[in-house]
């Protein structure tokens, strides 16, 4: 439909994907990595799918891309939440320089 706008959205999505994976490598512990990667990769992939929708318009592929976008934006935070709780219960400690840990205080009671 509108190819220039679609290209712009795809390039923005690719840049955010790259920053998210850079965060996966650079940040120090599981929770920070999970946070950075979930945010950036979710919005990046949604940008790519929205760019595909702008390329194709209201055809079959465009509508399916919109459906996929809604599905990803609903499920990615849920899986991040489940992984964070699973990592904490399985015994992964926070980073050494962390400031406060209210969850550990409450769970050990």
């Amino acid at each position: 439909m509108n190819e220039v706008l679609g290209t712009v959205f795809i390039v923005i999505g690719l840049a955010f994907d790259f920053f998210g994976c850079l965060g996966l490598v650079r940040l120090p512990d599981v929770y920070n990595r999970l946070q950075a990667a979930t945010k950036c990769v979710t919005l990046g992939t949604c940008g790519i799918l929205f760019g595909l929708f702008l390329f194709r318009g209201f055809t079959a592929a465009g509508l399916k891309a919109l459906l996929c976008l809604i599905f990803i934006i609903l499920t990615a935070p849920v899986s991040a939440h489940a992984l964070a709780r699973g990592a904490y219960i399985s015994g992964v400690k926070l980073w050494d320089k962390s400031v406060v840990d209210k969850y550990g205080e409450d769970i050990s009671k």
């Binding site: 795809i10 996966l24 999970l34 990769v41 992939t45 760019g51 390329f55 891309a65 992984l83």
Partner: peptide
Amino acid sequence: APDRIVAIDILGIMVVGFCAILTLPTGRD
């Protein structure tokens, strides 16, 4: 182990991006 699981989850989201980009030049919906 949670580090690896997180990375695999992120890869799984990114594969959707691969599929979306593959749709455009090949024209296979």
